[in-house]
């Protein structure tokens, strides 16, 4: 049972979200985090938004190498190969 004095506020919770998702919270802190989430709709939405953000980031196209940069690097490679 988590007493009132031990409860996280919403403002404290948002600062722990990354530690929570990275599985870096000490056990006791993790329980307080999950206790808060189970009773707070707004923080549940916040956590979901962070998850959605991460998922969207994972679907962004990665920067790709420009053809000019690739050509220059391959020329450098040929120069190196010739020693």
């Amino acid at each position: 049972m988590i007493t009132d004095a031990e409860q996280l506020s919403c403002q404290e919770l948002v600062e722990l979200v990354t530690d929570y998702l990275e599985d870096a919270l000490p056990e006791e802190e993790r329980l307080r985090f999950e206790d808060h989430i189970s009773r707070c709709g707004a923080c549940t939405i916040y956590l979901e938004q962070i998850r959605e953000t991460i998922s969207l980031l994972g679907h962004l196209p990665e920067d790709s190498l420009s053809p000019e940069a690739e050509r220059e690097l391959l020329e450098a490679f040929q120069g190196w190969k010739r020693g």
């Binding site: 530690d19 990275e22 870096a24 938004q49 962070i50 991460i54 980031l57």
Partner: peptide, 19 residues
């Protein structure tokens, strides 16, 4: 490890806020 997490936290928080 801690600093990696702090930087990731700030970046994700800001990107969420922008969205």
């Amino acid at each position: 490890e801690t600093n990696q997490r702090v930087l990731l936290h700030r970046a994700r928080s800001k990107v969420r806020a922008a969205l």
